[in-house]
Computed example of a mutant assay.
Amino acid sequence: MGQGTLIVLLSGVALLGWGVWVYNRLVFNRQRVAEASSGVDVQLKRRSSLIPALVGCVRQYMAHEQGTLQALVSERSRALELGEAALAARAPVEAQLSGSLRQLFALVEGYPELKADGQFLELQQAISECEEHIQMARRYYNGAVRELNVLVESAPSNLLAWLFNFAPAEYFALAAPEEGQSPKLEF
């Protein structure tokens, strides 16, 4: 075997090794995005499951704030309807739901009896913790998306990504800043 043949053979083995390594990184990052998406989904479902108990607790104290409670229930329903949709499609609805929760907690300041209710305090704490977990899960998801997208879009790994049909993932972000604002409710 000549020296030229050996160089070609070693180059081929090195190229094949690089291809396997890049392919495995693409698979790893795609799986990490899926796992992160599942983590965000779990937290969003957890928050949605707490809202009926919160509305029930608040309803007895805030009889004349029914518009706020109805908006919250309506936004929760929309979020549940989009439960199987991609995170990027759900982001605006989930942001509206977060805004409504913040608005409800702001209204509660005018109800000292409600603020002292043990069940309400537990629910408020659980939802606050849930919002923090959603933020952490969303940051992790967006980081995983970034890592995958860098591999899919940068050369030369984009050649293998194209060859094996790896596509960039969508970030969990709002399309427009106003989608994250609390809804304007009239009383």
Rank of each mutant, 00 (worst) to 15 (best):
G2L: 10
T5M: 08
L6F: 07
L6N: 03
I7N: 06
V8P: 00
V8N: 06
L10R: 08
A14P: 06
G17L: 15
V20N: 13
V27Y: 04
V27L: 08
F28M: 14
A34R: 00
R46K: 07
S48N: 14
S49M: 07
L50V: 01
I51Q: 13
Q60G: 14
Q66N: 11
T68K: 04
L69W: 06
Q70L: 12
V73I: 09
V73N: 03
S74Q: 14
S77K: 13
A79H: 02
E84A: 15
L87W: 00
L87G: 15
A89E: 15
P92W: 03
A95N: 08
Q96F: 04
G99N: 04
G99I: 04
F105D: 01
F105M: 12
A106K: 02
A106F: 04
V108Q: 06
P112G: 05
E113Q: 14
G118T: 12
L121Q: 14
E122N: 15
L123K: 07
Q124T: 05
C130F: 05
E131I: 00
E131R: 02
E131H: 01
E132M: 03
A137M: 08
R138D: 05
R138K: 05
R139K: 13
Y140I: 15
N142L: 05
A144C: 13
A144P: 09
E147C: 03
N149C: 05
S154Q: 12
L160Y: 04
W162R: 14
L163W: 07
N165I: 01
E170M: 12
A173F: 00
A175N: 12
A176W: 00
Q181V: 00
Q181S: 13
K184M: 09
K184S: 14
